[in-house]
Write a protein that binds this DNA or RNA. Sequence first.
DNA 1: ATTAAGAAACTGACCGGTCATTTTTAAAAA
DNA 2: TTTTTAAAAATGACCGGTCAGTTTCTTAAT
Lengths: 200, 200
Amino acid sequence: MAPRISEEAKKARRDHLLEAALECFSSKGYYASTIDDIVRYANLSKGSVYNYFESKEDIFIHLLEKKRTESMEHLKEKLDKIDSPTKKLQHWIHEDIPYSQDKKKFMRVHIEFWLYSADSPKLKEILSKRFDAMVDMTKAIITEGKKRGEFRQDLDVEQATAMFWSLHDGIWLHAVIGYDVKKLESHIREMENVFITYIQ
Amino acid sequence: MAPRISEEAKKARRDHLLEAALECFSSKGYYASTIDDIVRYANLSKGSVYNYFESKEDIFIHLLEKKRTESMEHLKEKLDKIDSPTKKLQHWIHEDIPYSQDKKKFMRVHIEFWLYSADSPKLKEILSKRFDAMVDMTKAIITEGKKRGEFRQDLDVEQATAMFWSLHDGIWLHAVIGYDVKKLESHIREMENVFITYIQ
DNA sequence: ATTAAGAAACTGACCGGTCATTTTTAAAAA
DNA sequence: TTTTTAAAAATGACCGGTCAGTTTCTTAAT
């Protein structure tokens, strides 16, 4: 019994490895990234990766899980500080738009997660968990908005949720693809107006 | 066996290979699909592929170009038969929703095209061509709608186009991911109503 | 305080297999 | 025979994962 590094240090290594993997995956994609790429980036040797993860796919899965919880926690924290349901929804959209190149790179991995989930039950489960949690949060906000009278009373929560997510994802997709940030911002504003008219 | 073959037959073989490739790419993804998979599907030998295409990537690119032109022509034809700009836009959305499992599978390839375009100038060009053509068509329809008085006169064509595409892509994304077709259809209708209210 | 033991962590050459691509061979058409 | 095409076999680069050996650190006996 002689742990050379503490549990935290070990976790730090794992995290370090995951970040290196993210960097590789997001610039070259999952398939094109090799274990050698990752360890080069992480300043580690190939073999030692397997002290931390079982396989390349295992890295992928842990990366997804990590990012999922991180972003959920971050979002919840932010939303808790906002009182108005309307403002919450507005904030949410802005929070998720990948304005920076950095965020855009992560989106590539995000989309790959989703793409490969078609073949991996594990991935599929993680993603659908995430999705369900998101939808539940949205429904809660919209329900609250109705109760407060901020939204119209005959608003169908189910429909409004779907609407929110279509708008959200449409904008999101365009942001990921898109070039012109100036235009994008004005489009988002227009979108917000339409949505607000719809819910009020 | 090694029959000599006419130009048309040769083109037919190429097409046959492309369709086989599509089938493989859409069920397993581009990277996971091997040349062996493709030829097994096409009932051809591995080597002969290289009589028709330069490389695996070459197959990918030709497949994209083929599908791009096919779908554009198909869409134009359909839209030409519709008179009302409103109905045109409505039709367009429905046309692109991958209701069938078959269409969904193709979408996977579509998304892969886009994902890998980040590393391939050739792919990038094909995709942006496609995108620009789509946007132009939309603008034309919206402009026509205004001229006819079917849409409100102060509608900003640029904004309305962006709006259409965000809605379109949001719905599209959800359809691709989606589970519940029943729900989806009612969401689409809701979406249409909101959009029509917006443009009129 | 020193040091030896031993376990944890790391290294990187290497292996087995895969796969895109090339070369060779064969056969059919002209 | 010559040309064209397909099939089969060969090639070799590449990559995930392994493993025998090495380093580094902790522990505890001296």
